[in-house]
Design a protein around this nucleic acid. Structure first.
Lengths: 219, 219
DNA sequence: GAAAGGATGGCATTTAGTGACGCCGCTGAC
DNA sequence: GTCAGCGGCGTCACTAAATGCCATCCTTTC
């Protein structure tokens, strides 16, 4: 997952590098947001923390709140990549369980720290409306991607109404579970108490889609 | 619905009046947003259109985009009030059908125009990220209220995880249907082609909650 | 009618966000 | 090597969103 190909720069900043830069900024911004609150954190401060000029920050982020987005997105990245790699012949439960244990073994320290920051941001979203919109925007992204995955799995176009309904319901459920588990972890609950999280997620998705998404597809 | 009790002023602005004022501002703001785009519309312009000082606008709205919220909210108000008045002994389908035909007969002109404006804003949300956050915030509100309704119906606390999952999935489905129907109406589809909308909504909610919300409750 | 309290307007101020321009470092051509 | 071109970055000036402060006005209550 941390392939880090040698940038291969031709024709502007590579997507890789742009993404890494945004992530760097987002890390610092999130740290500051968490430590001092959003309002008390200025664009200048973020710029200084990350060692760039303020102007450059605004070149890469359309607003202050959106500085949180990349980190927030990491909070759902695992679920998303797991869904993306879901083989047709496996049930959702089985696949999630397998991927989950793999993550437990293989996740890097950076990934863990980013996840922790992401959880904090999602928590902040509860009280800071500015961050809440970032969280909702991230969830919106998830929904779109979910629609593609579901569409492919059901052999329907992504614009199909049922597909969109399933994607919306499933990603909403995913969001609630993320909020729930994140809150619990911040309360001090031992993360290992959430060993059943993958199963819960799978079940929630299955329920929210009325059973349409979850089974192996035979095609 | 337009009771307009005589303000009964003591102890600050009445909620009624505050709400009406916000709605007035929102109407003008939405009109401008639709006509010229969000970026091209300034706070000063909104203030002038509604006949208030700019300062007062910022007293009632925390941001420019949020000026769209009250109107956007009207786009889901019918669904919400219908859900609120859902008697335990009726199925969702039956109740929705009844309320829907009542709305068709009794809705005032203002209500119809507001609804049209709301649809336009939801459409704008597709391309204008600023409005999209307003729409998502409105949906967030819907979800919270939905949680209360579902909780009451199932005899569970509103913080219960399953209740929150159901509310999230159901309101997400509701959102998609609103977007879908709204888009179709703006494309020129005859609104009467959506006579089956209440049934669709009911079915979507039932599906998204895995059947947990939809049946009469016998208690 | 006067006191009280909240809503409004005008003004100054802060700060998010943009545009214009020039510098610097990289890369590819010769 | 070096020169031209390009793309990212920093600086400065500027617009517009948003808030604080204070004077004013409007409404209710006595």
């Amino acid at each position: 997952m941390a392939g880090t190909a040698p940038t291969k720069g031709r024709g502007g900043m590579s997507d890789q590098r742009r993404h890494r830069l945004r992530l760097d900024v987002s890390r610092e911004a999130s740290r500051l947001f968490w430590a001092q609150g959003v309002d008390a954190t200025s664009g200048d401060q973020i710029a200084e923390a990350v060692g760039l000029s303020t102007r450059t920050i605004w070149r890469h982020f359309r607003s202050k709140e959106s500085c949180a987005e990349p980190i927030v997105m990491r909070g759902v990245e695992w679920e998303m990549s797991t869904l993306r790699s879901w083989p047709p012949q496996l049930s959702l439960e089985v696949h999630f369980a397998a991927e989950s244990s793999k993550f437990g073994r293989e996740a890097s320290d950076v990934e863990r720290m980013d996840t922790e920051l992401a959880i904090k941001m999602i928590r902040l979203a509860d009280t800071e409306p500015a961050i809440r919109t970032a969280w909702l925007m991230a969830c919106d992204q998830v929904e779109r991607e979910m629609a593609e995955i579901i569409a492919e799995r059901l052999g329907l176009p992504a614009e199909n109404l049922d597909v969109r309904l399933h994607a919306a319901a499933a990603s909403a459920a995913l969001r609630v579970l993320n909020e729930h588990i994140g809150a619990a972890i911040l309360e001090g609950t031992d993360p290992r108490d959430f060993a059943d999280a993958p199963a819960r997620i799978a079940r929630a998705v299955r329920t929210a889609t009325g059973g349409a998404v979850g089974d192996p597809v035979t095609t």
